[in-house]
């Protein structure tokens, strides 16, 4: 794994060391280490139950870790939760929008709760950025899934927090809705915001992320760029397989699954 030696991030946007969390006898996190450099999009990839949401909730001060430390833009989540909450914004797994309010009222409410001047201007600006201006005065109950997600992400951007965490932002969306959300995330990163996004969709990580960390059975087992991850499979493969390995191949290989239908790669998997 020397190829994947971590970047020496002196001042990471997110720094996690030795994070542990159990629910009763169930060990969900068994020592997670992860650094996210400022201004990058990092995808936290893992199957259901791998511990993605638990990690994210600890970062957002919603859960206390059993052991280990986590910092967000320099502030520690347990000892300085108030500062962390100023610097991070979480978009949870289910669009946490108020259906009875309009899109504009949702954004205005969040602006007031972040104690910003001019909540209405902030709301109008974000509605425009997320192509929701026309829908802004309609109740959210009338929105499509993609529109709700865009509003959800827009609400996370109120007050320009340094770090945005998106927990499975496209789960349950149709392809159109997914593309809308991807565009929104790309715009975020272009504006210099650090994004940590969890996903179980490999294509999503491949499309969006500067770096990809794979969380498996409570540990980060791989952390690198897409190119670095692809190099994990021996180059010999490239010589007799026309197609480059997709991230899906890499994912299944590093978590130790044998892919029954894909006989070409069985050799590599056994060698690991």
């Amino acid at each position: 794994m020397s190829a994947l030696a971590r970047e020496p991030a002196a001042d990471p946007a997110i720094g996690i060391q030795g994070l542990r969390k159990s629910y009763g006898d169930l060990q969900v996190l068994r020592g997670v280490d992860l650094n996210v450099a400022r201004g990058k999009i990092v995808a936290l990839l893992g199957s259901n139950g791998a511990g993605k949401t638990t990690t994210v909730k600890i970062l957002a001060t919603l859960l206390a870790p059993d052991a280990g430390t986590a910092t967000v833009a320099g502030a520690e989540v347990t000892t300085d939760a108030a500062t962390v909450r100023e610097r991070i914004s979480l978009t949870g797994q289910f669009a946490a929008v108020d259906e009875i309010l309009t899109g504009r009222e949702n954004l205005t409410l969040i602006s007031r709760l972040r104690h910003l001047p001019n909540p209405r201007e902030i709301a109008d600006d974000l509605l425009a950025r997320f192509s929701l201006t026309e829908a802004g005065s309609r109740r959210v109950a009338t929105y499509s899934g993609g529109m709700r997600r865009r509003l959800d992400i827009a609400m996370s951007l109120v007050g320009d927090p340094e770090v945005i965490v998106l927990d499975e932002p496209t789960t349950g969306l149709d392809p159109q809705g997914r593309r809308e959300v991807w565009d929104a995330v790309r715009k975020l990163a272009a504006g210099g915001t650090t994004v940590l996004l969890t996903t179980q969709y490999l294509e999503e990580a491949e499309q969006l992320a500067d770096r990809i960390a794979i969380l498996h059975e409570g540990r980060i087992i791989v952390d690198g760029t897409l190119v670095e991850l692809k190099n994990l499979l021996p180059p010999a493969e490239v010589e007799y397989v026309e197609k480059q390995p997709s991230l899906e191949d890499v994912f299944l290989a590093v978590i130790g699954h044998t892919n029954q239908t894909d006989t070409d790669q069985t050799d590599q998997k056994e060698r690991r």
Binding site: A60, T61, I88, S89, L90, A95
Partner: peptide
């Protein structure tokens, strides 16, 4: 259930 309490709890309020 809708997760909006979680959103509020992760904010500096």
């Amino acid at each position: 259930q809708g997760g909006i309490v979680e959103r509020f709890s992760s904010m500096p309020i």
